[in-house]
């Protein structure tokens, strides 16, 4: 088959939504043994958004999805993928309800759980459907309300995570046009599953016959090995995807890393020997929003003019699983709302 007939997934719309309630470091310091200075120096985070009672992941996903559809100039898609680790229910998946509320009843819809790497995995999945000809336009949403699985007494994780949603629309196009998603690198390491885990609530605990330990319903993480794995995996994945794309590291105008912690992003920059200024950042305002992180930071940087049309952008993410993924694209002209 001639190369110029190859179909690519092209970014043609983006939208985000954050719940209105802001929780600052000072707010956390009033309830827990922590301080603004401690949180800022360890994480780079100043504030995060947290859902109000009555909200859930689907609410955020619908708001972001509607904005992405509007940005794309058409409300028609033939697939909706929701990347989330905090679905509204264990069953059914959240995507069908999100699609229904977006006026897309009947359209194929499913959830994808790859935690903080979920959005890149969802982009790769959507791009695969487009390449295979099983979809022409796909709405990819990353949405999480991770504050709902945090231990209300754990000052570390409460400082890191926030709630939010971001979405993009991908359409079928050609590999040489702006917005075409480049090659992908995806990977996983289940031998380190326990580094970032919510132990209870799944089939292992439910099927164990053991009484539920209330502490196990909350997320826990082992910070130091997570830091090390995050830096190593994102750096290595970035190098791999650059190699597949035929780009050199110095060709990249902007790096969009998963926004988990500004210190991780700085360490990735040092590891790749890239100036920090080329790494877009919004973790200071939103914290770690899990699957929403990548579209939120891309939309934020594009709105601020930090990412411009024509910029060569590398996206890389890492999270629980462990799982990681990267891709590249040349930033297209988009309606940023």
């Amino acid at each position: 088959m001639a190369g110029h007939h190859r179909r690519a997934a092209v970014l043609c719309g983006i939208g985000t939504w954050l719940p209105p309630r802001v929780v600052t470091n000072a707010d956390l310091a009033r309830q827990l043994d922590t301080s603004d200075e401690w949180i800022r120096t360890r994480t780079g985070i100043r504030e995060r958004r947290v859902i109000d009672r009555g909200m859930s992941t689907s609410v955020l996903a619908v708001e972001a999805g509607a904005r992405a559809l509007k940005s794309s100039g058409s409300s028609e898609v033939d697939l909706v993928v929701v990347a989330t680790t905090t679905p509204d229910h264990p069953c059914p998946s959240t995507a069908p309800e999100v699609a229904h509320r977006l006026g897309l009843t009947g359209v194929a819809a499913f959830d994808l759980n790859a935690v903080c790497a979920g959005f890149v995995y969802a982009l790769a999945t959507a791009a695969g459907h487009i390449a295979a000809g099983s979809a022409e336009r796909v709405l990819v949403i990353g949405a999480d309300t991770f504050t709902t699985v945090l231990n209300p007494l754990d000052r570390t994780t409460l400082a890191i995570f926030g709630d939010g949603a971001g979405a993009v629309v991908l359409r079928a196009g050609t590999p040489d046009e702006p917005g075409a998603l480049g090659p992908f690198d995806l990977g996983a390491d289940g031998s380190n599953a326990d580094l970032l885990i919510v132990p209870a609530g799944g089939s292992e605990q439910r099927g164990s016959g053991e009484p539920l330990d209330p502490a196990d319903v909350h997320f826990r993480m082992d910070g130091q090995p997570v830091f090390r794995n995050a830096v190593t995996r994102m750096s290595e994945s970035a190098v791999k995807v650059l190699d597949r794309a035929g780009w050199r590291v110095e060709d990249v105008d902007r790096f969009a890393c998963h926004q988990a912690n500004a210190r991780i992003i700085s360490a990735v920059a040092r590891d790749l020997a890239v100036p920090q200024e080329r790494f877009v950042l919004n973790v200071d305002r939103v914290g770690n929003t899990v699957a929403a992180s990548i579209p939120l930071v891309l939309a934020d940087a594009a709105a601020a003019g930090d990412i411009e049309p024509g910029h060569r952008v590398l996206v890389t993410s890492f999270g629980a699983g462990l799982g990681w993924g990267s891709t590249v694209l040349t930033w297209p002209e988009l309606d940023l709302g």
Partner: peptide
């Protein structure tokens, strides 16, 4: 965290 990076 700086000590973790130092180990790397």
């Amino acid at each position: 965290l700086a000590l973790v990076e130092l180990a790397m």
